[in-house]
Amino acid sequence: MVNRQHDRPRDLAERMARRSKPADGFLRETFVLPRPAARARAREFLETWPKAAYMSGVESWRELPGDTIEFTMRRLPTAD
């Protein structure tokens, strides 16, 4: 049996997130990057999968210690 008493809140949140997958048809990618790299990655994502075709965008984001950003990008799997 695994002792989960000392898990951080983030560990619990990640386990719960893996269990529940939204059935809305969107593909999601979560990144944890320093602020400048996060901006560049989000820009690259939106250039690769334009909003007009894939309904792509930043679904959620939060600031972590050390000027690090955790963010989730979503998009449709195909452009119809």
Rank of each mutant, 00 (worst) to 15 (best):
V58P: 00
D24R: 09
A38T: 01
T68P: 00
A42I: 13
E70K: 05
F31D: 02
L76C: 07
L64F: 11
R18Y: 07
R74A: 09
P36R: 02
R39T: 00
R35Y: 13
V32A: 06
D80V: 09
S60P: 01
R10G: 04
R18K: 09
K51E: 04
A52G: 09
L12R: 09
S56P: 02
P34M: 05
P36G: 00
M55N: 14
D11R: 10
P50L: 13
E63R: 08
P22Y: 03
N3Y: 00
G57S: 06
D80Q: 03
P9A: 13
Y54D: 07
P77L: 10
L27E: 09
K21L: 10
L76D: 03
F31L: 12
W61A: 13
M73K: 02
G66I: 08
D11K: 04
E29N: 11
A40T: 10
R74S: 10
V2G: 01
R39D: 09
L12Y: 03
T68A: 10
M16G: 05
V2L: 09
F31R: 10
W61P: 02
R8V: 08
A52Q: 13
A40S: 14
R19S: 07
I69C: 05
G66V: 03
R74G: 07
R43C: 02
T68G: 00
R35N: 08
P50R: 12
R4N: 11
A37F: 08
A23K: 13
P34A: 10
E63S: 11
M55A: 15
R15H: 02
S20R: 13
E44P: 00
A37Y: 00
G66N: 06
T72C: 15
E63N: 12
A79S: 09
P65H: 05
P34Y: 03
W61I: 02
R15Q: 08
R18H: 11
R74Q: 15
L76Q: 15
E70P: 02
T48Y: 03
K21H: 12
P36T: 07
W61Y: 15
R39N: 13
F31T: 05
L12M: 06
S20D: 12
K21G: 07
M16V: 09
P50T: 10
W49E: 07
M73N: 04
L46D: 07
E63V: 11
A17Q: 15
R18I: 05
P36I: 00
E47M: 13
P77G: 00
I69W: 15
R18L: 15
P34I: 00
P77C: 08
